[in-house]
Amino acid sequence: MVNYKIVITGAYAAGKSQFIRTVSEIDVVDTDVPVTHTEEKELKHHTTVGLDFGTLTIDAEQRLLLFGTPGQERFDFMWEILAEGCLGYIVLVDSCRPAHFNETIVVLERFAAMTPVPFVVAATKQDLPGALPPTYIRRRLGLPNDIPILACVATDYAAVSDVISTLLDRIDVLAQDSSSSPVTHKEHSHG
């Protein structure tokens, strides 16, 4: 059995813990504590301070280990700890709170600086009234066109699986790209 580490990240209250709970086969490790900060409490009552952890088996030989990060920037040291050795990551963004897109931009920038591995963005809460379309969110986040952004509902198994398989495809494609590096091509053309 080969284990692949995937990180689920994003700003506060984007649905990261739920995303992992929806697909995990094991009881999810969570480190939820009650929210004490008044502004943060308006959004939800419990928050992750350490990590969320779940597993998802792909087939007989491969399994994903899903590591969810805390969302608040004051826990950014956990982002580094959890990102170590990951093969790819998923950035969740709350589609209903454009005022918080800047926090997502911070997450995107920090992860890009930490690790060069592939990532995808999932626009969550698409089932709620007032959810903005992924195309609009892409523009607001300044996301390049080659980075997928998917509509998602974190409680929906099919939607969450879809986001994860998009990331896995991307990891595969980029791995193939780098294995057929220009050096190898040159050697072939000369030979």
Binding site: G50, L51, L65, F67, F77, M78, I81
Partner: peptide
Amino acid sequence: GAIAATMMGV
């Protein structure tokens, strides 16, 4: 494994 690594990281 996930918990112990996080604890060591912290």
